[in-house]
Simulated scan of single mutants.
Amino acid sequence: MSKLKIIVSLITFLAHTMFAYAQFNDSTHHYIKYSTTGIVNKTNSANSFVLSNALRYSLKKNRTALNSNNSWVYGIQKKLVTNNDFNSTLDFNILHKDSSAFYYWGLLNYDISTSLNINSRIQSGLGVAYSFIDNNNWFVNLSTGFLYEHSNIQNTDDIKTQYSTTRLSARFRYRLALSSNIVLDGTHFYQPSLQYSNDYIIKSINTLTVKVRKWLGVTAAANYNKISYTNRENLIITFGFTAEDFF
């Protein structure tokens, strides 16, 4: 059995085990968040738009959590598709038995991206994380681990290439409540290949949300991605709405 199949099987088993255990317990907590943002530009000579949709669902029980994140970005400029980017991630967290700040994580991710020349990519991995601050106003978290990746891409010569690699994955997350109604949060990744020195991934997401209701906010988002292997990058700045609820 390949490394990829082993890691995927392990993560799938653990995720199903956690979900089955949590969904029948009264103390289980759920969180759902949906955001839709975009930009439309219309002139006499050309029209363009970018629409971004994201859905997050979290299920927590005591010292475990299961998270699902899905996003889709679609853009057109001068009647040409510039973005058709889909990402789906399933991950789990297990707190260390002697700490409320240190936890283990596992991840399974699938994405395709027209703008980054990714026909398909799957990543799976395991690692550890530590929350330096975690309160109502501040959240600061750093994680690291290893990912196994298999990709089908368009290389710099526009030729389809399939390749696999193992990556170090470093992630920095923060959340800052500037006031009771204004929240700034971000997630930043750096994922260099352990086999190829010129192969790395950079991903940065920042959002600023102003709440107009307890469950509804106006959001500005900046999303940056760079894939060195395909020599492609994108920067998307959008505005829209975010709805979220705990239950």
Rank of each mutant, 00 (worst) to 15 (best):
L208S: 07
A129S: 08
L107C: 00
I159A: 03
D111P: 02
N84P: 02
K203A: 14
E244V: 01
V40R: 04
K5V: 10
K60H: 10
V183S: 04
N206L: 09
L168Q: 02
I133D: 12
F86R: 03
T219S: 06
K160C: 12
I237M: 12
T12N: 12
Y104L: 09
S180C: 02
L116K: 02
R63E: 01
S113M: 07
G217N: 07
I237F: 12
G217D: 05
I236F: 09
N53M: 13
V140F: 15
V128C: 05
L147W: 01
Q23M: 10
I202H: 02
T156S: 12
Y103L: 08
A15I: 05
L95K: 12
Y190S: 00
G106T: 01
D157T: 03
Y103K: 03
S48V: 01
F86N: 06
N234V: 05
F241K: 12
N70E: 10
T161N: 07
N62W: 15
L107V: 10
Y103E: 08
F24K: 14
I201N: 13
R173C: 04
T64I: 04
D199E: 11
Y229C: 00
Y21G: 01
Y224S: 01
L66E: 07
L108P: 02
L168H: 06
S169Q: 14
T219W: 01
L90K: 04
D185Q: 06
M18I: 09
G127S: 02
S124V: 03
Y224D: 08
G127I: 08
K60G: 07
L184K: 01
N70I: 14
S9E: 13
S113G: 07
N69D: 14
T242E: 15
V212C: 08
Q162A: 14
I118E: 05
H29R: 14
H30Y: 15
N47V: 01
N67Y: 06
F19R: 12
K61R: 10
G125K: 04
L208K: 03
F19K: 02
T144D: 09
V40W: 11
T209C: 03
N225D: 15
W105E: 02
E244P: 04
L14I: 01
N234A: 10
A54P: 00
F13V: 04
H188L: 01
A46E: 13
S9R: 07
T28A: 14
